[in-house]
Design a protein around this nucleic acid. Structure first.
Lengths: 334, 334
DNA sequence: CTGAAAGCGCTAACAT
DNA sequence: ATGTTAGCGCTTTCAG
């Protein structure tokens, strides 16, 4: 059987195509007997509605865009699963795109999402200021940003409290006796980069420790960036007694740089990282700020679906908790 | 400007919609002057064809399905990029789905791909025998399998020579002096699992070393599986003097288990892993069988696009080279 | 070489 | 409550 259309179903059920459509898509009252006949026919013929015809008519798709900034980062892949699960639970499919933190790639994908009339977009913006969110907003395509926020915008977001989490991480290092704490921060243009660095600063200030600029370095949230930034930090002066690395991949790079310099943790310095790193099999185990990654994706998608459904509610800025999980890397050796 | 349609373009260009369509989609000869007028109008109005209307009419989409077996595995995410790049180069978009090696999830996605009339599918099958490839073949949707093959099937595939690569890895360990070489193999139902184990066996046989079944354990290609399998191996008798772990995530788990048991590499045993692991920041650096991951994705997609384009050629079974990159973990300490 | 007209499969107005 | 009709935007005969 090549293409079963709604007319075929109608013929078999002995009703009009419109009735079939009603049974399938609306809750208009249809005589129960007809309902059953329709359902029978659908089952017998193995009818599957043609989604493009439907979208053409309704001007609405059931496709979500998921635009993330680094598909090689396990943080984002965990998140993808949250999105995927929430979407497929209600019959939506997900188109994934990867920007590599590149604004022009990002813009291209946003244009595609608009042109394809996607129902909505989950986005991890490459920039707080320059992300061309307007491309979607103009066409009233709902957007939820994840992990990061957009500055001027009125779109929903799901993030964690980066400031607080970083503050907690650094305070933990201070409590463990560190006094010269280095930080490998992220790009200033991204809210996670900015927030985590601000938390670091706040914790030092609170402890009455002056900020030493030579202890602050920035990376690109990737392995190579973490390595280079850490090298730079180590070259800038006497080694710190504590190090806070603000994302997972940069932590991998930082460990490289520490090893190169012959520095061990927790013996030579205490270490706190960010994001789950169970895939990295590190020993000794790392103290990490862990995010509820899957839930971020899931919540973002559920929120997006509510917007798509036309629900009207004020802009949501959900902030999920990130928790410090203390392990060996931040325990002073006894 | 809400929705610019082909009629708007036609009106502005002073031609019929049919001519616009011809200019845009065919290479039928159209009077150059009209051509230019059409292009001008398209540019001026910012016209973007509605892809669903087009698909409805042509019964063809420009969407590729990419169904992979573990999105948390960096091997697959690198591959995703290859697919994405090749697809977007010709204006196709990619829908990603993740099966978690679960056959029922896989079947569901194959059904969706069929129902959505996707142009083609790149698939890393969860099983050599039970993957329901017929769901696509029936509707003549082209499929290319990557990383793994399907047993009975007549679909194109892109893999690496797992047997040879494993053989090389194990021979390398033998040459380094190992005599009791353990292997952490993958699921027998997956061609990569089977092929790599067979390569191990062949290398031992060639060296005249009898197979010791207590040195062969199996995992699920994930971290936990690698850890458990390695624990089992270590519990089964005196520790091996060499270990070959047949994928990246299991290597992470194996390292855990080795650390638990107080075994170090390369001091206590030599170690060879599989797949790039630069994200894991391991020290000492690991000897690895490395696959051209990006190219696998890219080649698979290019092949798929040729099939989609209607080219007719015999079933392709491309085998790319995997190369052994020797590092410290397999060098006997001097 | 170009235009008019039909129709892909579906749903939403409008009739009944 | 159900059927008839029109048309979403596009491509593709078929005429001219």
């Amino acid at each position: 059987m090549a293409h079963v259309t709604i007319r075929d179903v109608a013929a078999v059920a002995g009703v009009s195509p419109a009735t079939v459509s009603r049974v399938l898509n609306t809750n208009d009252r249809v005589r129960p007997e007809l309902r059953d006949r329709v359902h029978d026919a659908v089952a017998r013929l193995g009818y599957r509605p043609n989604s493009q015809a439907r979208s053409l008519r309704t001007r609405a798709t059931t496709v979500l865009g998921l635009i993330i900034s680094d598909i090689q980062n396990p943080f984002f892949t965990a998140l993808v699963r949250g999105v995927e699960d929430a979407a497929s639970a209600v019959g939506y499919s997900v188109v994934l795109a990867n920007t590599d933190e590149d604004l022009s790639k990002e813009q291209r994908y946003l244009e595609i999402a608009a042109a394809e009339q996607m129902a909505g977009v989950v986005l991890s913006p490459a920039s707080a200021a320059d992300t061309r969110i307007d491309l979607l907003v103009e066409r009233s395509i709902p957007v939820v940003t994840i992990d990061r926020r957009i500055r001027s915008s009125t779109v929903d977001s799901i993030t964690v409290n980066n400031h607080r989490a970083a503050h907690e991480a650094v305070s933990h290092l201070l409590a463990a006796g560190c006094r010269r704490i280095g930080v490998v921060a992220g790009p200033p243009d991204v809210t996670t980069g900015a927030g985590r660095l601000a938390g670091y600063r706040a914790a030092l200030k609170e402890a009455g420790i002056p900020l030493d600029p030579s202890l602050v370095v920035r990376g690109n949230f990737r392995v190579d960036g973490g390595r280079e930034a850490t090298r730079k930090l180590l070259a800038a002066g006497p080694p710190p007694d504590g190090l806070f690395v603000t994302n997972n991949l940069m932590t991998v790079g930082a460990l490289d740089a520490l090893a190169e310099a012959g520095l061990r943790y927790p013996e030579d310095l205490l270490l706190v990282g960010f994001d789950d790193m169970s895939w990295a099999g590190l020993a000794p185990p790392l103290t990490l700020v862990e995010q509820p990654t899957y839930d971020i994706g899931r919540n973002a998608t559920e929120l997006l679906l509510r917007r798509i459904g036309g629900e009207d509610f004020p802009v949501q800025r959900l902030v999920l908790p990130a928790t410090l999980r203390v392990r060996r890397s931040s325990q002073p050796p006894t």
